[in-house]
Design a binder for these strands. Structure first.
Lengths: 234, 234
DNA sequence: TAAAATCTGTCGGATACCCGACAGGTCGAC
DNA sequence: GTCGACCTGTCGGGTATCCGACAGATTTTA
C-alpha cells in the first residue's frame, strides 16, 4: 500500500501548504494514509457528523457548502487537487461545520484521526502546521465576506473567478481553466443562475473569458482583475 | 503593573476560550501583558499592517471589518469584553486581514508578539490552544456566510441578533442588551440602514425586541429564534 | 446649558436582481 | 448511436431592496 501512495507525493507537493511542511511530517501523513474513492454525488461528510480525520483531494473535486431548508445551496468552494479538507474538527473535536460532496468521481487521500492524534501527542509542535491551514481558510473566508457585502454582482463574479483560479489563495493548485458549472458558480457568489450567465456572457464578449459547457477559461487575467475592481465598461 | 493586571483575570475567565486554557498559560498571558486604551474612532490596527501581538477587549468595543473603495463598510463583528483578537497573523506571520477600530473608548490587554514567540518556542504544545481561537472564528465565519446566502433579509437580521447575543458562539461574553447602532447592524447583515430599521421595528411591534438609541434588547429569545428560521408572520 | 454630532424613523421613486418558463446544446451511459 | 440527464442561453414580469431626502429624537461635546 505504502509504495502506491508515494506516487502521489509530488502531486501533493504542488500545494503550498503541504510543500511547506517539515519532511518528516509529510512522510508521516503519506505513510499513514489510505486511498478512498467517491462516486459522483456521494458525500464525504455532512454537517453535524463526527470527524474521522483529514483528507486531501487527489483527483476529481469536492463541493464544500451547505443546503438550506428550502433546498437552496450555499457553496463555499469547489476544491480540486490538491486541497486539504477537514482540519477544523481536528482542533476542536466538534462536528463538521459543512457538507463535502463529490462533484464527479473523486480520489481522496485519507489520514485517519487516530494517526493524527498519535502524531500530535508525541510531537505537539505540529499543531502549528495544521493551524496554518485554518489561517489560510480564515483569510479566504474574510476576503469572501468582504467581496460579498462590498461588491456589486458583476465584480463579485470576476472576483470569484480570480479566487478560484488562484487556488483560493494557495489552498489548492492554481488553474486558468475552471471546471465549474455556471450553476455552481452562481451559488458561490449568491446570485441566480440566470444573472450569473448574463455577467459571464458579458465577460466573454469582451474576450476576457471563454465559455464551454461546465468550464470557464480565463483569457485575460489583467482585464479580469480590472473587472473585479469595477474599472471596466459594463 | 502585574498586580493591576490580575484584577482583570476573573473578567477574562468569563470567556469560554480563555477559561479553557491551562492555568500556567493563563498566568503567562496575563503577566506578560500590558494595558492599552483607545479613544473612540482610533484604530487598533488596519488591514495590511504587520502584527504586534494579541489583544483582549476589557472594556468598550472593537469593530472588526473593512472599508471598501467607495467608503461603504463591511462589518464582520463588533466585539466587546472579553473577546480576543489578532490571532491569525500570529500563525502565518502575514499582515492583518482586516481593520480593528474602537467604537467607543476601549480598554485593551496587549500581549506582545515577542512574549508569545518565547512562550511558543519553549512550549509548542500551546499552538493548539491558540488555534482553537481560529477554529471558533472559522465556524462563526461559515455560519455567517451560510446565513448570508441562504436567508432572506428578515431572517438574516434575527439570526444576526442571536449571534451577537450569544457572543458569536463563545468568542465573547453573551448579552441580551446589544449595544450596536442600527447602522452598524445593517452593515453586518449587508442591508441598507433603512430596511434594517424597518425589520427591527417589525420585531419590536411583536414585542420580540425593544429599541433604544444605539441599543437593542432581546425580549423573547424563543420567538427571535423562530423568526430567524422564518416561522413567523411577517 | 447650548450646540454639535449621531442615531432613528419614514417616504416614494429607481433598479438590480429574482424566478418561472422554455428551447437548444452538450455530455455521459447503456 | 440514441437516450436521458444536465447544462447553457434568453425573455419578461414581479419585487425586494437601495438610495436620497428630511425631520425628530437622543447622546455627546464644549
Amino acid at each position: 500500500m505504502e509504495s502506491s501512495l508515494h506516487r502521489y507525493r509530488s502531486q501533493l507537493e504542488t500545494t503550498p501548504w503541504f510543500r511547506g511542511l517539515p519532511v518528516e511530517l509529510r512522510d508521516y501523513l503519506i505513510s499513514h494514509a489510505s486511498l478512498l474513492t467517491l462516486e459522483k454525488g456521494q458525500s464525504l461528510y455532512r454537517r453535524g457528523e463526527q470527524s474521522y480525520g483529514l483528507y486531501a483531494v487527489l483527483g476529481g473535486a469536492l463541493a464544500i457548502g451547505t443546503v438550506g431548508l428550502d433546498g437552496k445551496e450555499a457553496l463555499l468552494a469547489v476544491l480540486g487537487p490538491t486541497a486539504w479538507v477537514g482540519e477544523i474538527s481536528m482542533f476542536d473535536g466538534l462536528p463538521r461545520p459543512n457538507d463535502a460532496t463529490a462533484v464527479s468521481r473523486t480520489l481522496l487521500l485519507h489520514v485517519p484521526g487516530a494517526a493524527l492524534q498519535d502524531l500530535l501527542d508525541s510531537a505537539p509542535r505540529y499543531w502549528r502546521d495544521f493551524a496554518l491551514l485554518m489561517a489560510q481558510r480564515l483569510r479566504v473566508s474574510f476576503e469572501n465576506a468582504e467581496a460579498m457585502t462590498l461588491l456589486p454582482a458583476a465584480q463579485r463574479v470576476a472576483n470569484r473567478l480570480l479566487m478560484i483560479a488562484s487556488g483560493y489563495g494557495g489552498l489548492n493548485a492554481s488553474q486558468r481553466r475552471i471546471r465549474v458549472s455556471q450553476d455552481s458558480l452562481a451559488s458561490m457568489v449568491s446570485l441566480s443562475r440566470q444573472t450569473t450567465n448574463q455577467l459571464l456572457r458579458n465577460l466573454e464578449s469582451q474576450r476576457i473569458v471563454s465559455l464551454k459547457s461546465g468550464e470557464i477559461t480565463i483569457l485575460d487575467f489583467d482585464r479580469l482583475r480590472a473587472a473585479s475592481l469595477g474599472d471596466l465598461n459594463p
